[in-house]
Amino acid sequence: MARLTPHNEQRARDLIALYPHPRSALIPILHLLQEQDGYLTDDGMQHAGELVGLEAAEVQGTASFYDMFHTEPVGKYLIAVCTNIACLLQGAYELLEHAEERLGIAPGGTTPDGLFTLEDAECLALCGNAPCVTVNWRYFGDVDREGFDDLVARLAAGDLDGEVPPHGTLCRVRRSVGLAAAGASVHGYGGPVPAPAESSRPGAIADEPTDGVDLETFATTPAVLALDGPASPDDGAAPFDDRTEP
């Protein structure tokens, strides 16, 4: 393990084609690597560097700056418990303590079966539904102890496989279009422009089939945040209940 597979290498080249400079595609490509392997391997980072024109050390230097990138294996499910201010006020540390006991690990640890990694997270921007938890960055709000246990049980049983993909998979919707705007300026600024790869000509990606999930299905998946709670149109204001009950 694990350089990018030929299919994923093509996806990486498609990403590079979206930017004026290849290096800009580094973070998206690292996400792609994490989707493929669950974490970042040395070979993978080497490959990413080759694609965007960087030394492996430079790739590692960038990757290590960002909390979402893991250079060691993590569990299939990365459970992040937010303990920042709004969640703290609603008992987040008590929830984290419970999670530690339930999973038998401290934050940063992974269960021996490789299923769960626990994280003590910073604000996840779901503070209206505190305390909240994400699993592989899928959100669950208003989580109490029972809710947490239930969530863990359902994950372990595979009941949430449709909603929560394995760690590393971020965006399941693929870009289905290439760059279409005319004009040399977009690709012509500041330094040598790399020779575009075969697929990166404007429009080329658009002709390829989208290998993302079916949008219809996705949009109607109940486990995605249900923001369509009742609003009161004539009220001028309404709270929006953005959560999934675990």
Binding site: P28, L30, F69, C171, V186
Partner: peptide, 10 residues
């Protein structure tokens, strides 16, 4: 053109 760029936790 519009390109979506994901951050990575920072």
């Amino acid at each position: 053109d519009i390109v979506i760029h994901p951050g990575a936790g920072a």
